[in-house]
Design a protein around this nucleic acid. Structure first.
Lengths: 193, 193
DNA sequence: CGCCGAGTTGAACTGAATCAAGAAACGTGG
DNA sequence: CCACGTTTCTTGATTCAGTTCAACTCGGCG
């Protein structure tokens, strides 16, 4: 995939960009090809990077009191970043690691700010990406308010049916706010009444 | 407060707007003065309105299986809307009601879209408001993942110390994902060890 | 006054966590 | 391609934070 094709893909997936904006963007884009378990961000770093995933997947997680709690997954054609650090200029509370060998592109905050100031349609692209993220978070909050462990697992399967094949159950469990043991019991049909 | 002062306030609180944009915006703005318990949005409506609160407060809530669960509070200088309906053009799962006599301004999606298309700085304003909302949701998710009932209550007091005086405890409890009884026990110092 | 909604208190119950042990799958080097 | 160690997942027993249900108190208001 060439840079131009990638940018065309982003433009198509989220919001159209003028050719001029696409061209300038393509100058900034660098393609990363990294192995499973590579760390994109570590806790405490000031991370001003955002990653767009072309292939593979990643997770953002907190390490708190020795517990590893997944906060977000990113798959193909999605962005992932330490949103707190990226938007508030604070040290990242998140780690971000790859869960598969992946191909990504990286954009820095300063590049995004420059393009947002220069191109109205780039500003709109960012607005739309942030809006989609916000709506996903809204769903996650509703899911935590309304559903028990089993329903939450069904919900995530409805959104991403391949997740259980691609991501260790531990991470899915912590993402759902349940323990690995509980998830294991849910998945075992013998435990159905 | 005149319309111009209100718009200046928004521009100052979130992101600066050019005079031209401020002028066009002020043509669209209508000021609402409504009593406590007034409904801004009802479930099932296609709500394409967003409200900016000048004075007072409001809550968005779900009614599910006869349970009333608060999803969001809005106070002075904040926006409130049924974000799902507003952004996805679907019927609202939320009700929105006023918790105090309030003064609001109302903007429709079509007005916001028009201004976003016409003015780059208005697009940016919206991007910034959405980003702030997203970061608040991020905090809410982290709060639900990491904290027990008592800590969640302390967290919300740290953010909005006046909430317990302005909002019935039932709504605070459901917002925190706990029952009214649990909140009552938390607040009672006799239950401390 | 007496009623009504909001909040408190108590006792029993429960979904999920924790603790502990073992089984299965995975991958890495010989 | 197999053996061995590590990581991932399962299963069981026990515990606990918070829910549920029910009765009661308090304060405001017609």
């Amino acid at each position: 995939m060439t840079k131009e094709e990638i940018i065309h893909k982003i433009s198509e997936t989220y919001s159209p960009l003028t050719l001029e904006c696409q061209q300038e963007l393509s100058e900034y884009v660098s393609i990363l090809s990294l192995k499973k378990n590579a760390m994109l961000v570590k806790e405490g770093q000031y991370s001003d990077k955002s990653f767009f995933i072309l292939k593979g997947c990643a997770r953002a997680y907190y390490l708190r009191d020795g517990k590893d709690i997944t906060d977000w997954f990113g798959f193909e054609n999605e962005f992932i970043s330490s949103i707190i650090s990226f938007f508030t200029h604070q040290p990242s509370p998140h780690y971000i690691e790859l869960l598969e060998d992946s191909i990504l592109i990286e954009l820095s905050r300063s590049q995004i700010e420059h393009l947002s100031n220069k191109y109205h349609d780039f500003e709109r692209l960012i607005r739309i990406i942030v809006t989609k993220t916000m709506l996903s978070q809204q769903e996650k909050i509703a899911s935590m308010q309304f559903y028990n462990a089993e329903q939450k697992y069904e919900n995530i399967l409805a959104i991403r049916s391949d997740i259980a094949h691609r991501v260790p159950l531990t991470h899915i469990a912590s993402y759902l706010g349940i323990t690995l043991e509980t998830l294991s019991r849910i998945r075992n049909p013998k435990n159905r009444i």
